[in-house]
């Protein structure tokens, strides 16, 4: 079973990399761009057939290592 974890900085945390990407796109003429935040994408494959159990196990991994909950938030998606 494969999952993706998407990690981004929380809204109230300054994202200087995202800001620079946003400004560069805007300077390239992308006038419709309103806001941009960048983050990390992690793919995981689990030896697990129960989706709920797999999900819980990834939650645990996020809390223990993958995500710094002080500054980051995450979404888990089945892929």
């Amino acid at each position: 079973m494969k999952f993706a974890v998407i990690i981004t900085l929380k809204k109230d945390v300054l994202d200087p990399q995202g800001k620079v990407i946003e400004q560069t796109l805007q300077s390239m003429g992308v006038n419709s761009l309103k806001n941009l935040r960048q983050g990390k994408y992690i793919e995981l494959e689990l030896n697990e057939t129960d989706e709920k159990k797999a999900h819980n196990s990834i939650e645990d991994m996020c809390k223990k290592l993958l995500v710094n909950l002080i500054i980051e938030e995450y979404k888990i998606k089945k892929i």
Binding site: P16, Q17, V20, I70
Partner: peptide
């Protein structure tokens, strides 16, 4: 900070 012995976070420098 990552061990939790000290609190907070160290982000990328503001000027990148």
């Amino acid at each position: 900070i990552e061990t939790g012995l000290l609190q907070g976070a160290l982000l990328r420098n503001k000027n990148l």
